[in-house]
Amino acid sequence: MKLISAIVKPHKLDSVKDALQAIGVRGMTVSQVQGFGRQRGHTEVYRGAEYTIDFVPKIKVEILIADDSETLVVNTILESASSGSIGDGKIWVTPVEDAVRIRTGERGNDAIDQEQGR
């Protein structure tokens, strides 16, 4: 199993979600996160004073998948999250030892919601 983590621009979340659903991904976790990379921070203005805000709001998408789906899922996120401009985010893949569905106690691939690769 693999954990796919993707940091994407907030306005790209819908297209990423739709594209992943289209290839059969049936579950994901999203969170609002803040950070910076090459895009660096941005400037906000309050009562005439300009403040440099180091952290830019982003969305983190996390998906558990079977090993053989890795390339398809990564490529799908790549296509659906890209705008070509700086700050588009990152995708990384982490090996996962085990997964458990809390309701049934199923383990491993049985605990993951997915249709792809079957």
């Binding site: 906000e44 309050y46 004073a49 403040y51 440099t52 805000i53």
Partner: peptide
């Protein structure tokens, strides 16, 4: 203050 951004 005022080095850190203390914003609404």
């Amino acid at each position: 203050w005022p080095r850190e951004a203390m914003v609404p």
